[in-house]
């Protein structure tokens, strides 16, 4: 199944989803398609004015361009997801996940779709990590 991971660039979530036999929907894959698209010349991300306008599907015109642009990249991933993992309290990360408002909206859009979703916290201790990995494994295996 296609699993949306949030943060959408997390190494830990990407790896766990693949490890337990599913396809992670990550922002890196979308960026990969964009940067390889030679027809667009808007480096570094090839996010264009049209993309930012397309972001209006997810957030109104009064919302800053950076949020709409990010949503134009991630929104389609949320739309095609069949399940999701949301990790709260993830460590500092910049760029695509650098805007807290966007991250809040992404969490909300995922929850609104009422997909099978698991919400976990970023592990701080061995005990946290043990529980987190066990829950994610059970969740992913339950999807099969």
């Amino acid at each position: 199944m296609k699993i949306f991971i949030d943060p959408p660039n997390s190494l830990i979530l990407f790896d766990l989803v693949e490890r337990f036999g599913h396809e992670p929907l990550s922002v890196m894959a979308t960026i990969q398609e964009r940067v390889d698209n030679l027809e667009i010349d808007m480096p570094p991300m090839n996010v264009t004015l049209t993309d930012v306008k397309n972001g209006l599907k997810y957030a109104g015109i009064e919302v800053p361009s950076g949020i709409r642009g990010r949503l134009a990249v991630w929104g389609p991933l949320i739309d095609q997801a069949e399940a999701a993992i949301i990790m709260e309290d993830a460590p500092y990360s910049f760029g695509c996940v650098g805007c807290h408002r966007t991250n809040l909206l992404v969490d909300f859009l995922v929850r609104k779709r009422k997909l099978p979703t698991i919400e976990i916290d970023y592990p701080r201790t061995e005990e946290d990590a043990r529980n987190m990995v066990i829950r994610v494994k059970e969740f992913l295996e339950g999807l099969k």
Binding site: S10, A90, P91, G98, P123, E126, V133, I134
Partner: peptide
């Protein structure tokens, strides 16, 4: 932009590794 996250997640991999051990052993949360 993703480098600092990679750095932090890399540090946490030791925790994840231990978590995976437990999960694969069949431990319950």
């Amino acid at each position: 932009p993703g480098f600092s996250q990679l750095q932090t997640e890399w540090q946490s991999l030791s925790l994840v590794e231990k978590g995976l051990e437990c999960a694969l052993r069949g431990d319950k949360a």
